[in-house]
Design a protein around this nucleic acid. Structure first.
Length: 581
RNA sequence: GCCGGCGUAGCUCAAUUGGCAGAGCAGCUGACUUGUAAUCAGCAGGUUAUCAGUUCAAGUCUGAUCGCCGGCUCCA
């Protein structure tokens, strides 16, 4: 649940949705009187309610529940709040056979509990609610899902109904249209339509095949990434995909990360492990030589491919996979450099992400969890540095208290795509664990050994996830610099094929990706095809162009221009590529 | 992993109560020679995810397995 976005949609909308969830629960109770109620809050763009019902709900049930809700809304019962003592409330819910409510009340610290009543329906609830059910003007039940009681997988699984509600049906319709738009932009669909990537049964779940067009986009991203890193004072490293199991013993991953690691394989009586992280390798490079305090900061970056075991049910297109390439970097620095390094990284993240058209972010600072390594003093120092860096950069952020990784505090940056959905990609983490475990050190000014600070960071997170987000962000219509085919050459008839091949060659020599499909098809069909493939430019040549040695073009956007010089057109494209627009 | 749903040609989808697996697009071949979002015709394409079972007969019913989808938990 995202509190900030609840705020942005308004407290009254939250009350409306919360009230709608009560009305839904009431309808469910009426249709299934044996139902045991769990919880039913408002969430970012709607609400849900968890139930234990004797049987599995079906989509038809949702329709019945909606009808029952509509009747209740017409009845327009008031929402009335009142208080009971804890004991009275427990007795009430015991009497009505509502064990989850009893458990909730028992866990409350207050002496009195607040309840809301409307119609005959009573629920444990802090409120607030709308005045009466009639205020619910537009709602829809969206999906049925399983959800663990109290979010713990050891507990019983309940049935959750998701729904949403708005103040007007116009807003509801807009929301539903938005959902439809999101479905159209689904990277799995676009990935198939544009032949960018696939994930196949014969290869294995969560393992991505990058097809030529996807791989081309990846190459452009990688080239950009590498060049920007070199400019920003990073050095590039490369490390293997596996290492002796001992390495993971030393790093501690076998202890705390085993569930996410694939089983080791045995080679020549030694056990090897496919890597779930890149950090130990970078540390190994560091440790291969002596380091002076003068060397810092050391910034090593790698597009490092890692493999992690993810439970089957969590895999999702490119967003959640089992093999992925992190745009990883590790920075070794002095305490005194931590803050400025963090600020550098923040600037760098913004620079890289904004190039892809991501201008809005949700930033979170995660602080020390209950279980942690390192001294509390170091944690405070590092957390303070992260905080100060964010404040100096005037970046608004939320604090996720206790949500840091056990080895250090972190800043997570979630990018917001054009559909305003947030995606976890970038992360900046201070690590107190690995330097200790690997005994990483440098020789200080005083001639003695000291422990450097280590920062992990990823800007795009993983190329797979980032690509998935990018596909949805652009809806498949990649900007020219990323488009796998930048120019589709289309001839009016096959008389013009020779000229088409000639200009294709000119495009290629100029480093532009031009395609000419010689297939004998009417130009209307070829334009349609290029348009559906979201090719940025179509160059059209017929008698007129061949005669005058010119070209005509049509942009994906609909922009058209006839009879321009090939050099002028190429200049235009090069300018557009340079600006990465 | 858990709850629920789904799995038919490369893609999108059909196939009465169990009764001969089909269409469009894409592909191939040929004809047409085209001016800004689909030219026409022919051909080919399948162990209906896999494996068992029920039945005279299974895409359809049952069970298991695999995978996918929506969530939960977990996370780049």
């Amino acid at each position: 649940m995202n509190k900030s976005s609840l705020k942005s949609t308004g407290a009254d909308l939250e009350a409306l949705r919360h009230s709608t969830s009560h009305v839904m629960a009431q309808a469910v109770m009426k249709l299934f009187p044996e139902t045991k109620l769990a919880i039913g809050p408002a969430i970012e763009d709607g609400f849900y309610y968890d139930f234990e019902i004797g049987r599995s709900l079906t989509p038809e049930d949702l329709i019945k529940i909606e009808k029952e809700m509509a009747r209740e809304i017409v009845a327009d019962h008031k929402f009335e709040s009142y208080e009971l003592s804890k004991q009275e409330a427990i007795e009430y819910f015991k009497k009505h056979n509502q064990p989850y409510k009893v458990e909730l009340i028992e866990s409350l610290s207050e002496d009195k509990v607040s309840l809301y009543k409307h119609g005959g329906f009573v629920d444990l609830c802090k409120g607030p609610h709308v005045k009466s059910a009639g205020e619910i003007k537009a709602f829809k039940l969206l999906k049925i899902a399983g959800a663990y009681w109290r979010g713990d997988e050891k507990n019983k699984m309940l049935q959750r109904i998701y729904g949403t509600a708005f103040h007007s049906s116009k807003e509801l319709d807009e929301y539903l249209e938005n959902l439809e738009e999101a479905r159209k932009r689904d990277h799995r669909k676009i990935g198939k339509d544009l032949d960018l990537f696939s994930i196949q049964d014969s290869i294995g779940p969560g393992l991505v095949l990058w097809h030529p067009k996807g791989a081309l986009i990846r190459k452009e991203i990688e080239d950009f990434w590498k060049n920007e890193h070199l400019k920003a004072g990073y050095e590039l490293v490369n490390t293997p995909h596996m290492a002796l199991l001992d390495l993971w013993q030393t790093s501690g991953h076998l202890g705390f990360y085993r569930d996410n690691m694939f089983a080791p394989m045995e080679i020549d009586e030694f056990k090897y492990e496919i890597k779930p992280m890149n950090c130990p390798f970078h540390i190994a490079i560091y440790k291969n030589t002596m380091h002076s305090y003068r060397d810092f900061p050391i910034r090593w970056a790698e597009l490092g491919t890692v493999y992690r075991y993810e439970r089957r049910g969590v895999l999702h297109g490119l967003i959640r996979v089992r093999g992925f390439t992190q745009d990883d970097a590790h920075i070794f620095c002095l305490d005194s450099q931590l803050e400025s390094e963090i600020m550098n990284i923040i600037d760098f993240v913004m620079h890289i992400l904004s190039t892809f058209g991501f201008k809005n972010y949700d930033v979170c600072l995660s602080t020390r969890p209950e279980k942690y390594v390192g001294s509390a003093e170091n944690w405070d120092k590092a957390t303070g540095a992260l905080k100060k860096a964010l404040e100096k950069k005037k970046i608004p952020y939320e604090v996720d208290a206790g949500e840091g990784v056990f080895y250090g505090p972190k800043i997570d940056i979630k990018i917001k795509d054009v559909m305003k959905r947030a995606h976890q990609c970038s992360t900046i983490q201070v690590d107190f664990n690995l330097p200790e475990r690997f005994d990483v050190k440098y020789i200080g000014e005083d001639g003695k050994e000291h422990r450097p600070i280590m920062i992990h960071r990823a800007l795009m997170g993983s190329l797979e996830r980032f690509f998935g987000v990018l596909i949805e962000h652009y809806g498949g219509a990649f900007p020219l610099w990323l488009a796998p085919v930048q120019v589709e050459i289309i001839t009016v008839s096959d008389k013009h094929n020779e000229y088409a091949l000639k200009i294709k060659d000119v495009f290629c020599r100029n480093g532009l990706r031009a395609n000419f499909n010689i297939r004998n098809e009417k130009m209307g069909a070829k334009i349609r095809e290029a348009q559906m493939q979201k090719t940025p430019y179509m160059v059209i040549v017929g008698d007129s162009e061949v005669e005058k040695n010119l070209i005509s073009f049509r942009a994906r956007s609909g922009e058209k221009q006839n009879d321009i010089g090939l050099d002028d057109f190429i200049g235009k494209l090069k300018e557009e590529i340079k600006n990465k627009k």
